[in-house]
Measured scan of single mutants.
Amino acid sequence: RLRTTITPEQLEILYQKYLLDSNPTRKMLDHIAHEVGLKKRVVQVWFQNTRARERK
């Protein structure tokens, strides 16, 4: 499986959303995924990875 490439514009939106809520609901994940044009699962994993990186 190929990795999904996230553009700088998408990253900017994801980080803005992360600052508002680091643990979004399913509904919010759907909305964010639609807004940035990525699959919900990709957005979900991005949030998981970002939370894990923050803990280190």
Rank of each mutant, 00 (worst) to 15 (best):
residue 1 R to S: 13
residue 1 R to L: 15
residue 1 R to I: 10
residue 3 R to C: 14
residue 4 T to M: 12
residue 4 T to D: 13
residue 4 T to Y: 07
residue 5 T to C: 09
residue 5 T to E: 15
residue 5 T to W: 08
residue 5 T to Y: 06
residue 6 I to E: 04
residue 6 I to R: 01
residue 6 I to F: 14
residue 7 T to M: 07
residue 9 E to M: 06
residue 10 Q to H: 05
residue 10 Q to L: 03
residue 11 L to G: 11
residue 13 I to N: 06
residue 13 I to T: 11
residue 13 I to Y: 11
residue 14 L to A: 00
residue 15 Y to G: 13
residue 15 Y to A: 08
residue 16 Q to T: 11
residue 16 Q to C: 12
residue 17 K to W: 10
residue 18 Y to E: 00
residue 18 Y to G: 01
residue 19 L to R: 09
residue 19 L to I: 03
residue 20 L to W: 07
residue 20 L to S: 10
residue 20 L to E: 10
residue 21 D to F: 05
residue 21 D to W: 02
residue 22 S to E: 12
residue 22 S to D: 12
residue 23 N to H: 05
residue 23 N to P: 00
residue 24 P to F: 03
residue 24 P to N: 03
residue 24 P to K: 00
residue 24 P to Y: 03
residue 25 T to V: 05
residue 25 T to F: 03
residue 27 K to G: 12
residue 27 K to V: 11
residue 28 M to T: 09
residue 29 L to V: 10
residue 30 D to M: 06
residue 30 D to P: 03
residue 30 D to E: 06
residue 30 D to Q: 13
residue 31 H to G: 14
residue 31 H to C: 12
residue 32 I to K: 01
residue 32 I to M: 04
residue 33 A to N: 00
residue 33 A to M: 01
residue 34 H to M: 09
residue 34 H to P: 02
residue 34 H to V: 11
residue 34 H to I: 03
residue 35 E to L: 08
residue 36 V to A: 09
residue 36 V to E: 00
residue 37 G to C: 06
residue 37 G to F: 03
residue 38 L to I: 02
residue 38 L to A: 04
residue 39 K to S: 13
residue 39 K to W: 02
residue 39 K to T: 15
residue 40 K to A: 13
residue 41 R to C: 14
residue 41 R to D: 15
residue 42 V to N: 11
residue 42 V to M: 10
residue 43 V to D: 01
residue 43 V to R: 00
residue 44 Q to K: 07
residue 44 Q to W: 02
residue 44 Q to H: 10
residue 44 Q to C: 08
residue 45 V to A: 05
residue 46 W to S: 01
residue 46 W to T: 01
residue 48 Q to S: 10
residue 49 N to I: 06
residue 49 N to D: 13
residue 50 T to S: 08
residue 52 A to W: 05
residue 52 A to G: 10
residue 52 A to D: 14
residue 52 A to Q: 14
residue 53 R to P: 06
residue 53 R to E: 14
residue 53 R to F: 14
residue 54 E to T: 05
residue 55 R to D: 15
residue 56 K to P: 07
residue 56 K to Y: 03
